[in-house]
Amino acid sequence: LRLEVKLGQGCFGEVWMGTWNGTTRVAIKTLKPGTMSPEAFLQEAQVMKKLRHEKLVQLYAVVSEEPIYIVTEYMSKGSLLDFLKGETGKYLRLPQLVDMAAQIASGMAYVERMNYVHRDLRAANILVGENLVCKVADFGLARLIEDNEYTARQGAKFPIKWTAPEAALYGRFTIKSDVWSFGILLTELTTKGRVPYPGMVNREVLDQVERGYRMPCPPECPESLHDLMCQCWRKEPEERPTFEYLQAFL
């Protein structure tokens, strides 16, 4: 395994491009020591290896001592969030954005069929390849993070704006909380990567959403798509659509 080009840095580690087995181009995620327990990670990795779908980033291998390494397929255009905010983002029109959403829903419909939960679905965790191919990455890892700023769910590192209220408040993460996050991801797509709930801080978002506030229809977004977002944001988790439905609708 060779680490060649550093692609990015996040709160919990770095991402590199490299070569595996001398020939395969891969992405390598390294986790800061202390982010998660190697034992817990190894268990999760076994499950992650079983998830194989064309719209999920394929896991190739893991190094399960500290520092933990995760070796996955390489996606040339990086994260969907950076892609939307970058040069190419300007030229993306609604049909392409909807197609990308459908690809993500397709990957998540598979996660749904496998009775698995992602827990951290957002544009930053979707990767883009050639020809606007989108794949879901980092599934299941969020559960293992041991950082206090994260586990408190009120901490600075927790993605509260993407998280369903029952998950943020009571830790009830299910495929239905993933559906909520998918609704937020749809706003990221239609606004080219704007942060959700602009002008609001995490605490406010939690309070307002509890009181029934939902983001309005983004500019140039059809009402039918906003309606779909609002279905994803129904207060009762069981009233939210399935990913199978979302995939078919898109």
Rank of each mutant, 00 (worst) to 15 (best):
H118Q: 04
V128K: 05
N148M: 06
R203V: 14
A101S: 12
K235S: 12
I68G: 09
E87T: 13
K157R: 09
R203D: 05
K50I: 13
V136K: 00
K77D: 08
T191H: 14
A137E: 02
R234Q: 09
E166F: 00
D227L: 13
A152M: 07
Q58K: 13
P216M: 09
L246N: 08
M108T: 13
V201A: 13
S181R: 01
D147T: 08
P218D: 07
P219R: 12
G140T: 00
L97M: 12
L42K: 04
F173R: 00
S76L: 15
Y170A: 06
H226Y: 04
Y69M: 09
N115V: 05
A101L: 08
C134E: 00
L225A: 10
L84Y: 06
F158T: 02
S37R: 06
P219Y: 14
W20Y: 12
L81A: 15
R153D: 06
P218V: 10
E65C: 15
K176E: 11
R122F: 03
A168K: 04
L225R: 00
S64T: 06
V136L: 11
L206D: 01
P198K: 06
D138V: 03
I160A: 07
P38S: 15
R143F: 03
V26T: 13
N202H: 07
A142Y: 00
G8I: 00
Y60N: 11
G78W: 04
T72R: 06
L31F: 01
F182E: 01
E244V: 13
N125Q: 03
E54N: 11
E239K: 13
G171M: 12
T88N: 11
T242W: 15
V195T: 14
K157L: 14
V62H: 05
G129I: 06
E54Y: 12
E220S: 09
C134F: 06
W16F: 14
L127P: 01
D82H: 10
P33A: 11
R211S: 09
K6L: 13
A101P: 04
A105T: 10
M17G: 15
P216Y: 08
G86W: 11
E39D: 08
V209N: 06
M215D: 04
Q9S: 08
E146H: 08
Y150W: 02
P159Y: 00
R203F: 15
T24Q: 10
E4A: 15
G78K: 10
V47A: 06
R214Q: 12
W16V: 15
K55I: 06
F182R: 00
K135M: 07
Q247D: 08
R119T: 02
R25Y: 13
W180L: 01
G183I: 00
A102I: 08
F83P: 05
R93P: 06
L59H: 01
C134Y: 08
W20T: 14
E4G: 15
E188F: 03
K29F: 02
L42D: 04
D178S: 01
A152F: 03
L250Y: 13
R240H: 01
D178E: 14
I145V: 10
P219T: 11
P222Y: 08
D82I: 08
P33I: 10
D138W: 01
K50Y: 12
G22P: 15
P218A: 08
L144K: 15
W180V: 00
R2G: 09
T191I: 05
A142G: 02
G155S: 05
F182W: 08
R211L: 11
L7R: 11
V195L: 10
N202M: 06
M229L: 08
C11N: 06
R214E: 04
Y91A: 08
K49F: 02
Y213L: 09
Y170S: 07
K157T: 07
Q247R: 10
V57E: 04
A27D: 01
L97T: 07
N115S: 14
N125R: 00
R25T: 12
G78A: 07
K161G: 00
V57N: 14
R122P: 01
S177L: 05
L186N: 03
I70S: 01
T163H: 02
P196R: 01
N148H: 08
V117H: 02
W20L: 12
L31E: 11
N148I: 04
E39S: 12
S79R: 03
T30C: 05
M229A: 06
N148Q: 08
G129D: 14
D120A: 00
A152D: 03
V195C: 13
M75I: 06
K235V: 11
S76N: 10
T35H: 11
L84K: 02
K49L: 02
K77H: 08
V26R: 09
E54G: 11
A142S: 05
L80M: 10
K29M: 00
N21S: 11
A156W: 03
W162P: 01
D138C: 03
R240S: 01
M75Y: 06
E4I: 15
A137L: 03
C11V: 02
E166L: 02
V5K: 13
L84G: 03
K29P: 01
D178P: 00
R214P: 02
K50H: 14
Y245D: 07
A156M: 06
K157A: 07
C230K: 14
L94A: 08
G18P: 02
